[in-house]
Design a protein around this nucleic acid. Sequence first.
DNA 1: CGGCTGAGTGATTCCCGTTTAGTGTTCTGC
DNA 2: GCAGAACACTAAACGGGAATCACTCAGCCG
Lengths: 211, 211
Amino acid sequence: MTVVLKKPHKSARKPKGDGHLRRGEILAAAEKIFIAEGYSGATIRKIADAVGVSSTALYMHFRDKDQILLEISNDAIERLLDLNIQIASQPIDPVSRVRLMLEAYMRFALDNPNTYQLVFCSTGDHVSADKIGETMALGDRCFEKFSEPVHDIAAQGRLRSGSAVQAAEVLWSGCHGLVSLLITKPSRGWSEPEQLMKVMLDGLLHGLVTD
Amino acid sequence: MTVVLKKPHKSARKPKGDGHLRRGEILAAAEKIFIAEGYSGATIRKIADAVGVSSTALYMHFRDKDQILLEISNDAIERLLDLNIQIASQPIDPVSRVRLMLEAYMRFALDNPNTYQLVFCSTGDHVSADKIGETMALGDRCFEKFSEPVHDIAAQGRLRSGSAVQAAEVLWSGCHGLVSLLITKPSRGWSEPEQLMKVMLDGLLHGLVTD
DNA sequence: CGGCTGAGTGATTCCCGTTTAGTGTTCTGC
DNA sequence: GCAGAACACTAAACGGGAATCACTCAGCCG
């Protein structure tokens, strides 16, 4: 009678982890590497090694590299969107809402520099449109949520120059500029980031909104 | 008596272009491709093909790919520095100087998007410090030139909040944010760039500087 | 003539993302 | 209870990037 060697036959491979939970492992490993080493540092092979699986295996669960990293980024942007929604629900004046949202935005960027760069600083040339679609949609929803209090300010007739849309775009891009430079040029001798954020917000809000 | 076959021996290669003038050809070809297709589009092989030379030949004249592209970028930044120097020499009030410099900066970015991205949007992770050194120095000199009128404004006691250095950094980064988003996210539905630039400048200057 | 040097080359190396063909295990329908 | 589909996975390879290597010319100088 032969002993049935079920398990130890040639178990060099993973124990048949039910697929979708392998997906989670990949995302977790990829996130760790991506946060530490950025887009180009998060190699398919490195991620696969971290999971303990061949590089090809990742293509069982994801279409390509970008899908992995964008899924991670989407989660992060969703957190940012939640922040905006939460701030939007607070019973405060629209200017304070705008300020809180922009502060949250900049802190998010500084806390998640690689995600921020991937989503807000890259051209997305190499990423096909259908993949970046969800990320773009989430980003747009963030901007829409942020635009609401700006429109409220405009409705109060307190906008010093430009339309509500223009004001929202300028407020956003101004803060984007500050954090993107802080992230991409960290070796330059910057002033204290917190103070720069304050000067940026004070300046833009005082410049665009009347009291 | 043997006929000396000097030229037509096996002249599949380039006619021995005197080294340093080959360098110019490479830069010209690389600039054209870089402007049209950006950093990753400007391949060593593509540049070499355009010159009509093997890819290896580029390494006779340049240490690596980055040195080629940075040399092109340095020329562009020098043009930007010249603009700043010229504006600095005009007999106008410091606020006008600041405005003119920032306008010139943003127009430069929109006119040279790929150069701008390479210099002001990339982390420079892959670029070793010694190569990026000259570019950084040129960028710093641009910022210094721009800082001068801001310091003049501060000396007049007209700064609403923050130090002169902070104000300069905020003014710069605000404008950087606008053009970098216009460049990297062209498909997003932006307002008219000229108007956005005006709203940004009006907002920041009115917000940071008293009349 | 002989040796040196600088410009240029093809082959090669390494790393990247991705594809292909195939292997072993488990589940399912008959 | 068993064939075969479905699944999770792998090794090998591909094509395309940057960069390096050993080598070959051509011209020049003594």
